[in-house]
């Protein structure tokens, strides 16, 4: 019996969470009855709404930057010894060129291996 009550509470709290935070309509008559009968879930619902209310109010309150001109000047002053990193001007190889070089090196290895094989064959025949 206790487990059944807990399960109901868990389901109710999931619905409360969705209702409060996703603005979907999760409440029905059965859930309202549960809220009336279960002080813990009722308290959970009120707490969730309180948090939502406070965060919404904080969301609307902007922290005001006092003396923005001074901050701008401080930032600009601190740049005097810094220069933006320049893009690398070194030797640049595109991705296609890299692929071509890789393929070429594999071909060369095959050619060298084949020549080595032919040379070995000749040596064996001579022997």
């Amino acid at each position: 019996m206790r487990k059944e009550v807990d399960m109901n509470c868990n389901i109710v709290r999931e619905k409360i969470y969705k209702q409060v935070y996703t603005d979907t309509r999760e409440f029905d008559d059965e859930l309202m009855r549960h809220l009336n009968d279960c002080p813990a879930c009722n308290s959970y619902y009120k707490d969730c709404r309180s948090v939502k209310k406070i965060t919404s109010l904080l969301n609307q309150k902007q922290a005001v930057l006092n003396n923005p001109k001074k901050l701008t000047n401080d930032i600009l002053d601190s740049l005097n010894e810094i220069k933006p990193k320049k893009k690398s001007t070194g030797f640049y190889i595109s991705i296609n060129a890299k692929r071509f070089l890789a393929a070429a090196s594999v071909c060369l290895m095959i050619v060298f291996a084949y020549e080595q094989y032919v040379a070995m064959e000749k040596i064996i025949k001579l022997e």
Binding site: L65, N66, L71, D74, I75, I82, P84, K85, K86
Partner: peptide, 22 residues
């Protein structure tokens, strides 16, 4: 905290200046 937030903003824009090419 206001002072810390100002430091963060200053640090942020210095990083932006340094790394704008990325």
């Amino acid at each position: 905290n206001e002072e810390d937030a100002k430091d963060v903003v200053q640090d942020c824009f210095i990083k932006i200046w340094k790394n704008i090419n990325s």
